[in-house]
Design a protein around this nucleic acid. Structure first.
Length: 642
RNA sequence: CGCGGAGUAGAGCAGUUGGUAGCUCGUCGGGCUCAUAACCCGGAGGUCAGGGGUUCAAGUCCCUUCUCCGCAACCA
């Protein structure tokens, strides 16, 4: 054993079925976990689901089921997907698990007792009808994002975690451990945007919803997501504030937390500080992996471009999908997935390079030697070249994997496969077969090929476990351990090979794409936007809103901001300054002269230092694109809209 | 001037401490027939975003401009 290796994924939020992008993270973690096991580490691979929070509470209410039922459903789906993707997790934690909830409560108590969590108050906007608190940014149009009612400024009691106290220690840790935050560019983002400006204490409790872990010593307070979700990495191992379970003592600290780049902040700032406060070691590394895009777009349900793992696996098989995810994702930049690209990779690499090599080698062995493995004899230079590459490849893969460069590790193996294909052309086995005197040479050539394939299959097993298994069965070998790659003699002369079988059939791209299109068309009921209406209002409510026609007199960009335009709008006998977030869609000169609809009785506010006295109405389509609303024909500025 | 990253062949990307510009796909031509119309070889295709500088030598270091992206701020 080379020691322990503890790897985690982020826990999936149980508000909707995870798409292929979410699945990517689990597969990536799995590949690393399997690789580490293969090379001799004692691995613990944790994944799971994050199941609390207001969003889930609300969703459940809408569906008319209990939150628990709701999360049970989704958690089961997540688990099912992880399972058919072949992820070899050692534990699947759910934040609604009993032991987790108890441990989180103890953590909260401990931090409170030692003064790292204190009770304070949280100023925000309160919506009476929803009994909810919102921050400035959560409000839509200055009103409750949920029900649209007016909100009022209010204070709420809440618990806070003292981040500032640990700020310097965190900074030092990041500086002393350059590998702590990966990739590097992310580290700079965290340090410059958050740590250097100074950390604000973090609100770690809520009273606005109940679907969460209760604070034991203060009724009505629920532990907010940070402490609840992040703690899973230690509670899963049986962490306890008083005496820790064996697992915890053995595996903590984590070697790597694998997470999406979007939640890097929580894992590189809040989580380390929590751990420091608990007196625990920090994880060795946090890797914020890039995102998987559908073509060049972010996947989203509203765009209807969501690709689910299930469909891909049904059509292409698990290992092909795993291969794509693991090999096509760059280390730091977002990757892209389309059906077309997937098919291209399957054909070019899996079918042509890998599958065909195995197939032709097994076929020749059968044809020339009745599937017997021959003993290699004298080696020629060309043989040595192949063997040297085979022997060198495990080291290369190992080193790539040490830096989590999974795609690179796979490429090394494919180099060997390509070299093997070339070796066939260089040695002309079919000619050797015609000459009885060259039987021995032919046997040697085939032996070298079989052994190279065995090498490749061993190295590929963390990435494509099923495929490796199939190859081993075709080779009829049980020598599949990593150490067997130290010598080029794993295949045993005299053994009989198994039956040949196509590993990856070539796919007719055109036909397959048509098939998928048809299937997706069937499953996408309609393009229409689903309407979830805000609560009914009376004519009196509506009457409170004063909408007028205005004419844009001048308009300029707000240099400090990317999205904001500042317009001077003539409304009747007044000229108002209005700031709008439309800079991505309109040039200032486009706006000048336009007649627009303006809400004139919104409370004025300052945005990026500029006063905004109203709102220009704009329609927002699914891509978040904004289109300014104008009256159909000329109307005098100041006219009432109703 | 908020912080950071990126701009290299038609596409997707590599290019460690500066020393002849590479890989995969595609394309064109050739070879081979064991194999899944597969495999192997070769050709074409790049003022390494633009401009300046340091150096015997710059994709690589420095300055500057432009364009994309991420984070932050913000979307009345």
């Amino acid at each position: 054993m080379k020691g322990k290796y503890y790897i985690t994924t982020a826990i999936a939020y149980t508000s909707k079925t995870p798409h292929i992008g979410n699945t990517y993270e689990a597969v990536l973690a799995d590949a690393i976990a399997r690789f580490k096991r293969l090379v001799g580490y004692d691995v613990f691979f944790l994944t799971g689901t994050d199941e609390h929070g207001q969003k889930i509470e609300n969703q459940a209410k809408e569906m008319g089921i209990s939150p628990k039922e709701h999360v049970d459903n989704i958690a089961a789906e997540v688990k099912e997907i992880w399972d058919f993707m072949g992820t070899s997790y050692d534990k699947f934690i759910r934040t609604t698990d009993d032991y987790h909830e108890k441990a989180v409560q103890k953590i909260f108590e401990k931090l409170y007792k030692q003064g790292d969590i204190y009770k304070g108050s949280y100023e925000g906007w309160y919506c009476t009808s929803c009994e909810s608190f919102y921050t400035e940014g959560q409000l839509t149009d200055g009103k409750c994002p949920d029900c649209g009612d007016p909100v009022e400024k209010a204070k709420e009691e809440a618990y806070f975690l003292k981040l500032s106290k640990y700020q310097d220690r965190l900074m030092k840790h990041i500086e002393d451990n350059p590998e702590f935050i990966q990739p590097e560019s992310r580290k700079n983002e965290m340090v410059n945007n958050f740590i250097k400006p100074g950390l604000q204490d973090l609100c770690v409790s809520r009273t606005s919803f109940t679907w969460g872990i209760p604070v034991t010593f203060d009724e009505g307070h629920v532990i907010y997501v940070w402490i609840d979700a992040l703690s899973n990495y230690i509670t899963a191992l049986g962490y306890d504030t008083e005496n820790n379970a064996l697992l915890f003592n053995k595996y903590w600290p984590a070697n790597v937390h694998l997470i999406g780049k979007d939640i890097l902040r929580f894992h590189t700032i809040y989580w380390p500080i929590m751990l420091m406060a608990l007196g625990l070691e920090l994880p060795k590394q946090v890797f914020g992996h890039p995102w998987l895009l559908q073509g060049t777009d972010k996947m989203s349900k509203s765009k209807g471009n969501t690709i689910y793992a299930k469909q891909l696996v049904d059509h292409f098989g698990v290992d092909a999908v795993r291969y794509y995810l693991l090999h096509e994702m760059p280390f730091a930049n977002d990757g892209s997935l389309t059906y077309g690209l997937l098919i291209e990779r399957i054909n070019a690499e899996l079918a042509n390079i890998l599958g065909n090599l195995v197939n032709r080698t097994i076929a020749m062995s059968k044809k020339y030697f009745d599937s017997k493995v021959m003993a290699p004899t004298e080696l020629e230079d060309i043989d040595k070249e192949l063997i040297d590459l085979a022997l060198a490849t495990p080291g290369k893969a190992l080193s790539s994997m040490d830096h989590l460069k999974v795609a690179e590790a796979i490429s090394h193996v494919f180099e060997l496969l390509r070299r093997s294909n070339k070796y066939i052309d260089e040695t002309f086995p079919w000619l050797l077969a015609k000459d009885e005197n060259k039987k021995e040479r032919l046997g040697t050539v085939l032996y070298n090929l079989l052994e190279s394939i065995r090498f490749s299959a061993v190295m590929l097993s963390p990435f494509m476990p099923e495929t490796s298994k199939k190859i081993f069965s075709q080779l009829n070998t049980k020598v599949t351990d990593w150490d067997s790659l130290e010598q080029f003699n794993g295949m045993k002369p005299g053994d009989t090979l198994g039956e040949g079988e196509i590993l990856f059939a070539r796919i007719d791209a055109e036909q397959k794409l048509a098939e998928l299109d048809e299937e997706n068309a069937k499953n996408t009921p309609s393009d229409d936007i689903e309407i979830v209406s805000k609560p009914e209002i009376t004519i009196d409510d509506f009457d409170k809103v004063d909408i007028r026609v205005g004419k844009v007199l001048e308009c300029k960009k707000l240099p400090k901001s990317k999205k904001l335009l500042v317009s001077k709008v003539k409304v009747g006998n007044q000229v108002r300054q209005i700031v709008s977030g439309i800079a991505n869609y309109y040039e200032p000169e486009d706006m000048v002269g336009k007649n627009v609809m303006v809400i004139i009785n919104l409370k004025p506010v300052k945005l990026c230092g500029e006063l905004s006295e109203g709102m220009i109405m704009a329609a927002q389509d699914e891509d978040d694109k904004l289109v300014v609303c104008s009256p159909e024909s000329q109307v005098k500025a100041g006219s009432v809209v109703s």
